[in-house]
Amino acid sequence: MRKTGAHRFTGWAPAISAAICALLVTALAAANARAELPAEDAEGWSLHKEEENIRVYTIDQDQSSFKAFKAVALLDVPIGNLMAVMVNPRSCVEWVYNCTESYAFGKGSFHDRYAYSVNDMPWPVTDRDYVLRIRTYGDETSGEIIMDLNATPNQRAENDNRVRVDRSDTLYRFIPEGDQTRMIWVQHTDPNGALPGWLVNSLLVDIPVRSLQALEKVAATEPYQGFRLVYDADGHLIDVRLSDG
């Protein structure tokens, strides 16, 4: 029997009203136009590192001393495998570089939920923690899936031993290409507090490169096999479920 935290999300497929479906279509079309993040095709992206199937770009952000990054990778796993990982609230520790704790909290749905995570920082830098709102949209016709992750720091009490990140915006775009998946990851985070420049610069590259390498391996493991994407009658993604049989 397969065992994975992804199973706890099976059943997150409530009936969606026509009005909400319309909003999902709008969100899918507009997700890349969020003011917090630069557009994927914005001028100014500079290639920072290329390693096998992963390319990482950086760009300056207005009113921030920290750059945003864009990582583009062709992962050798089907999109269903990847989404089984992504909807597992505890999978952060399996693939996100330096993530040491992660779990879902509060009432949520497949499309809109909350998660808490912790990033380990090298001594003497204090660990950072995140409270994220995660929204997921998918379109059956194009096959694309978009996930928006935005910091919502006031949703949980702060921990005295960690620094709460209050500005972080992330976009994941998954594009199926046969048995492979192209993933585009755009992120800008202001980690709060004083951080050495060498650490900031290394994280901009190390986080996406090491994370995507781990994600490709994790999504190919047995616990994440056999999942399928479930769409409603209008072609909107409503769940990721383990296939019958």
Rank of each mutant, 00 (worst) to 15 (best):
residue 169 D to W: 13
residue 190 D to C: 05
residue 229 L to W: 08
residue 148 D to H: 09
residue 185 W to N: 06
residue 224 Y to P: 10
residue 173 R to T: 14
residue 163 V to N: 03
residue 212 L to I: 11
residue 186 V to S: 05
residue 197 G to K: 08
residue 201 N to D: 10
residue 228 R to M: 07
residue 211 S to K: 05
residue 230 V to F: 04
residue 140 E to R: 14
residue 162 R to K: 15
residue 185 W to K: 07
residue 156 R to G: 02
residue 201 N to A: 12
residue 152 T to V: 15
residue 163 V to M: 09
residue 156 R to K: 15
residue 152 T to R: 13
residue 150 N to E: 14
residue 159 N to Y: 06
residue 181 T to S: 07
residue 129 D to Y: 10
residue 217 K to V: 14
residue 177 E to C: 08
residue 157 A to Y: 04
residue 221 T to F: 03
residue 218 V to S: 08
residue 228 R to A: 07
residue 194 A to V: 06
residue 145 I to L: 13
residue 165 V to C: 08
residue 205 V to M: 05
residue 165 V to S: 01
residue 160 D to E: 14
residue 203 L to A: 09
residue 148 D to F: 07
residue 139 D to F: 05
residue 228 R to V: 11
residue 194 A to H: 06
residue 174 F to W: 01
residue 220 A to S: 14
residue 209 V to H: 03
residue 182 R to V: 05
residue 195 L to V: 08
residue 170 T to K: 01
residue 162 R to W: 01
residue 166 D to G: 12
residue 171 L to C: 00
residue 140 E to C: 10
residue 184 I to Y: 00
residue 226 G to F: 04
residue 182 R to S: 03
residue 166 D to T: 09
residue 227 F to N: 01
residue 199 L to F: 04
residue 182 R to F: 07
residue 170 T to G: 02
residue 157 A to D: 13
residue 185 W to T: 07
residue 227 F to G: 00
residue 208 P to K: 02
residue 141 T to Q: 13
residue 140 E to F: 04
residue 195 L to R: 00
residue 167 R to T: 10
residue 184 I to P: 00
residue 161 N to K: 15
residue 224 Y to L: 07
residue 190 D to P: 01
residue 137 Y to C: 05
residue 132 L to S: 12
residue 223 P to V: 03
residue 217 K to S: 07
residue 131 V to N: 08
residue 158 E to R: 14
residue 133 R to C: 08
residue 211 S to H: 05
residue 146 I to F: 09
residue 146 I to L: 11
residue 178 G to A: 01
residue 130 Y to T: 07
residue 153 P to T: 12
residue 142 S to V: 03
residue 173 R to F: 06
residue 219 A to Y: 10
residue 154 N to P: 01
residue 225 Q to G: 07
residue 227 F to R: 02
residue 193 G to I: 02
residue 199 L to R: 06
residue 138 G to K: 07
residue 145 I to C: 09
residue 162 R to A: 01
residue 216 E to V: 03
residue 150 N to R: 06
residue 191 P to V: 00
residue 219 A to Q: 04
residue 164 R to F: 11
residue 144 E to Y: 02
residue 178 G to K: 02
residue 143 G to R: 14
residue 144 E to T: 09
residue 152 T to H: 12
residue 199 L to N: 08
residue 149 L to K: 08
residue 181 T to N: 05
residue 201 N to S: 13
residue 159 N to A: 13
residue 180 Q to L: 08
residue 168 S to P: 00
residue 131 V to P: 04
residue 187 Q to A: 10
residue 150 N to P: 00
residue 156 R to I: 15
residue 227 F to L: 02
residue 164 R to P: 03
residue 134 I to F: 00
residue 173 R to P: 05
residue 167 R to S: 12
residue 166 D to M: 00
residue 191 P to G: 02
residue 227 F to V: 03
residue 139 D to N: 12
residue 170 T to Q: 09
residue 205 V to L: 11
residue 140 E to T: 00
residue 178 G to E: 02
residue 210 R to S: 12
